[in-house]
Design a protein around this nucleic acid. Structure first.
Lengths: 105, 105
DNA sequence: TATATACTTAGGTATATTCCTAATTACCAA
DNA sequence: TTGGTAATTAGGAATATACCTAAGTATATA
């Protein structure tokens, strides 16, 4: 939880998550979208990964990164639930949606 | 948005939000729950306030802080929506809930 | 094998964050 | 007015973060 919020505090890392929302991307693909040195992006990716927000897989020379969407929604949902009791029913709805999503890929 | 995520990155500030979920509290009430100097808490409160997550009102000698729940849910919802398209329908559901909530206070 | 490409690790620097103590401001009450 | 309580502002030190360049590892290809 702490790691997730720390990870989200940086705009470059949130942008990386947004890129990964649409497709799996290699570290180089991601880096090329930023005006920043590759090692910096690599570091951001490792922070996102140790927060559990993304996962990586090496294929050949490339390392592909993808989103772990549950970890984001679970953490944020859990927190919002704690702070804003109003939002509590959303969790059930979220679970229902997740099931629906499994059925129709 | 940046300010909200920065504010949430600190565990003391998240804990303050959790306290304020249940009731409005004075700065001193909040500080007394922490093993931390009062000025540090005051600073955390000002960070939360400039992020729009809490609001304050001075009454006599006391400054009372309260949650601004919409700002939290809106920011997090907006972000999750951008990153996890799966969660998109939640927004409509959230709006419906908000309306319901208005009707039955 | 030699060379190029993809990526990470290592090390260093500038800046930001988080905490503290001391001082200040604002309000209440004797 | 004087003294006490509540809270913030000011200033400073320790630590963490975010970036860079240079060097290293691993894989593909000529």
């Amino acid at each position: 939880m702490q790691r997730v919020f720390e990870a989200l505090a940086n705009p470059a890392r949130r942008r990386i998550l947004a890129y990964l929302a649409h497709a799996e991307l290699s570290a180089g693909d991601i880096a090329s979208r930023f005006d920043m040195a590759k090692p910096s992006i690599s570091q951001h990716l490792s922070i996102l990964e140790s927060a559990g927000l993304v996962s990586s897989e090496k294929r050949g020379q490339f390392v592909f990164y993808r989103l772990v969407p549950e970890s984001l929604t679970n953490t944020l949902h859990g927190f919002v639930q704690e702070v804003c009791p109003v939002a509590r029913p959303l969790k059930r709805e979220s679970a229902a949606l997740a099931r629906k999503d499994d059925e129709t890929p």
